[in-house]
Design a protein around this nucleic acid. Structure first.
Lengths: 208, 208
DNA sequence: TTATTTATGTGTCGACCGATCAAGAAAGAA
DNA sequence: TTCTTTCTTGATCGGTCGACACATAAATAA
């Protein structure tokens, strides 16, 4: 990495942050180069010199999002003292992260490249993998709850994890539709009401 | 409506169906006029003569979707014999509708115009209203469950309804991510596990 | 037939898309 | 200073976007 030549006149990290927020708000296709350069305060050749392409910028935006908002959620999960608390913190931290002031609502990973054809197949596969990682991540935490006798041994952990990730994804859409943090927390509490039946064992969770 | 002049050479309803499926699959922005006319088997002037504009076609596609797939779900709900069955049929019919063979997965109303800037503000507001109507619709059905003594009187019905609609919207994303009907049904069953605690009254649903 | 009306196929409009080129500016290396 | 390297600015590339003009074809009305 040469340190010769004219130095960059803008803060790369800050520009990336602005770009991430625009992708977050409008999605990959919805954010045009003209809008991105406007939000980032640079001209397009500078964007291409620094990030290679629109897709390159988007990839870095994904990484940035995961390192920031994503880390907040999993950090909250890590300090949970029980399997139930893992799910509770996962959903509560989600409610907070999806309604931060001054940031787009909902989840970048869920909302920014939904429709086929948006972004490249590679990028969409990458985002898909990150969504699935939420399921595997929660499943691993739940496994410790089984070892601790907190969850019945015959519980389908991945199924439970997938249910709560599905609720989280629904919360992303609710947030994008204007739901407040309090509304998301109420949804989270409703989902947590299923915890007992879901983890109590053989007597199949039946509701009524 | 004049019946003079050269008659239309294509089936308007069938063309609308093809257009609806493309919007469903790729979203409003993602489906270009070129792709639409290709899928519909007509040239662009015919599209504009028959539907006015891309947005006009999209509006009719929304109506068509609601009248078809949407009606299937609410038809299933109408024949439910209890409030619990209302939610169960709502989610089970959703699992079926979101994974029909030969059709796009997930929900047109949820997936086709997510990001800001896609479609016009009017169309997005209209879709938003349809999503909210799911909440009010379920709430009304739940009210009968209270009258029947099936649901505790102090239950926040709209909250319960919103929770299950959130699950449904999460299922739309799971379906778009490749979830099978069986997987969606399992998610639905997990959500139904919350029914007892959610409707049992004062003793707040707490999970653990 | 002739006139009128409507739909179709071909071609194309201005606007915007993502991406670059070329020329000048600002740094270190010699 | 001069050379080399890198970034910035302004202009612009070919392609695609949604939408439409125009001429022609196919129907009814007179």
């Amino acid at each position: 990495m040469a340190d010769r030549g004219r130095p960059r006149s803008f803060d790369r990290e800050e520009a990336l942050g602005r770009g991430m927020e625009l992708f977050w708000l409008k999605g990959f296709d919805g954010a045009s180069i003209a809008e991105l350069t406007g939000a980032m305060g640079i001209a397009s050749p500078s964007l291409y010199a620094a990030f290679g392409s629109k897709e390159g910028l988007f990839r870095e935006a994904v990484a940035r999002y995961l390192a920031q908002e994503g880390a907040d959620i999993w950090q909250a999960v890590l300090t949970a003292g029980s399997a139930h608390a893992v799910i509770e913190r996962f959903l509560m931290a989600t409610a907070t992260a999806f309604t931060l002031e001054g940031r787009p609502t909902g989840c970048f990973v869920v909302l920014s490249a939904i429709n086929a054809g948006a972004a490249s197949a590679e990028v969409r596969a990458e985002l898909h993998a990150w969504r699935e990682r939420n399921v595997t991540g929660l499943t691993q935490h739940l496994a410790r709850g089984v070892a601790a006798g907190e969850i019945a041994a015959d519980t389908d952990l991945e199924q439970v994890a997938r249910f709560y990730v599905t609720v989280q994804q629904g919360m992303a859409l609710q947030a994008r539709d204007g739901a407040s943090r309090a509304m998301l927390e109420a949804i989270a509490q409703s989902a947590l009401a299923a915890w007992g039946p879901l983890t109590a064992g053989k007597t199949v969770p039946a509701g009524q």
